[in-house]
Design a protein around this nucleic acid. Sequence first.
DNA 1: GTGAAAGCGCTAACAT
DNA 2: ATGTTAGCGCTTTCAC
Lengths: 340, 340
Amino acid sequence: MNKPPRRPMTLRDVSEASGVSEMTVSRVLRNKGDVSAATRVKVQEAAKRLGYVPNRIAGSLASSHVNLVAVIIPSLKNMVFPEVLSGISESLDGTALQPVFGVTEYRPEKEEKVLFEMLSWRPAGVIIAGLEHSDPSRAMLAQAGIPVVEIMDTDGEAIDACVGISHRRAGREMAEAILAAGYRKIGFMGTQMPLDHRARKRFEGFTRTLAKSGVEITDHEFYAGGSALTKGREMTQAMLARHPDLDFLYYSNDMIGAGGLMYLLDQKIDVPGQIGLAGFNGVELLAGLPRRLATMDACRFEIGACAANIIAKRVAGEDPGPSLVQLTPRIDFGDTLVRK
Amino acid sequence: MNKPPRRPMTLRDVSEASGVSEMTVSRVLRNKGDVSAATRVKVQEAAKRLGYVPNRIAGSLASSHVNLVAVIIPSLKNMVFPEVLSGISESLDGTALQPVFGVTEYRPEKEEKVLFEMLSWRPAGVIIAGLEHSDPSRAMLAQAGIPVVEIMDTDGEAIDACVGISHRRAGREMAEAILAAGYRKIGFMGTQMPLDHRARKRFEGFTRTLAKSGVEITDHEFYAGGSALTKGREMTQAMLARHPDLDFLYYSNDMIGAGGLMYLLDQKIDVPGQIGLAGFNGVELLAGLPRRLATMDACRFEIGACAANIIAKRVAGEDPGPSLVQLTPRIDFGDTLVRK
DNA sequence: GTGAAAGCGCTAACAT
DNA sequence: ATGTTAGCGCTTTCAC
């Protein structure tokens, strides 16, 4: 039985074990340059036998190439972001690039910290949620000299590239659909998140469009914490108690919308006859509900995949295509938003 | 307007800008060693003005200290894992350590690749889901000379430390509860995942315990892909069509369980009078459903937090506590598993 | 309290 | 096809 070596293994160990120079070992392990088949085999065997794991820290320092892509998102608790990550992960799968994730909790200071931390590893690119960043954050991104893709939102000024949807437009289109369907007494429910700029923009797009038609939302409520489904239930109940004459409820996400839907069905309220409903995100989950909630897909997976693709292309020196990719989600009317 | 420098900034730039030696600049930036207040201020100002971001690749190579913790999980699509990540992330928040995530898609080869990739960054520790790994993976982990915490499952042989629950026991306890409640004609539904060892162990614990009481499951079905809620619906419908006399349905996760519950409620079937139901995971989501599905908490957040804690303690040289932490989830009977 | 020298483990560039 | 040399940007160690 060999004890595991205390000193981590180096190229030199493989070199000695195989009787081949460090340089050639390095070449074999990276499939770079011409190496004779015989040497190649000798080296590979030695490396495998020893269980050699290269030290990328040294490698990256020497080559000034890093195969990391920094990905910065607000949260992991909202399924939206894991889905974006999946898109990134899958899109990067064929390449040598590797995603590294950081979470900001919707806090600009935390974003700054995480960004600094990640940039200190000199990643090959950055994918970051949103267009709103502190000045130091923007400065860091601009200075980094690497591709930066801001994702999820296109309403604003991008530093470099941008992939997402217009949340103002999403709010606007939902408002238009609701008005077109004949609803007029409208309530809004959303998360209490001053720093969730995308939710804010949807809300703004929504209320402004209503205003243009002379409609003002009758009631609105914002929540924080707790199970979204439960909150949707509770808020819906409370809002209808305050305004029994409401004929439409727009929810800033599908989860609370689903909660509201469940409540209304429990109460035997006619949906969408008496009250119409809509959410946002197009979460796959909802497909199994008794009635399909109207919603709008946020293109989460696609956004991740496309952003990663831009980074990969740029790193490879290929043409990454346009630096602004605006996806245009369509309304899914489901069963809860229909002409009265 | 200054153009962003093409050559990334180094300590030397800060040194020159501040008139202080590189060495002292380094000390200031790391709060190490004695530096006069005057010099400290000079350096900090220069660093800030220039927007200097240290190069941790060089730093880590020189110091052979890396502040990364590798976290390896099967998937991001199942909310369970983002929750574990949140636990890790929060637990590491006070420390200098930073989590780095890799996804295996439940495939041992991919796990091996991801592990190799991550170990090549010489992380300070590894947190990895499950106890089942390929021989090369186990060898890498054992050789790495860093703390390794295997999480989520305690049924097996850990390489180093282990934090999780016993899924066999979870299956067993659920079986016992179901039998105690008087149910006898039992159906099982789960994911078609030969490589999801935890689901497999729950199933084994479940069926073995039933067998001890002379009960064999009447029917079972495994699904792959699609919306879990929808699948739960469909499978439940199909299974009841095959066996209308079933009196209990055990689902390997809460999502398909919720789908089943919705179907049964739609059909006006008496739950839990005619049929009892149980899921697994304790997903917060379900709190808003019309009836609370019986379930068992998988302690996801807690597992992540505890694992991260062990790594942090070990890295800090403190006592990490016992190397096997077995959490014991209790059954939440909800409204769907009650004595008949 | 500060600085100079050496070297972390690897790879680019240049031999041979 | 293989080896040699220099150095990536920082920190450790030791000197002052």
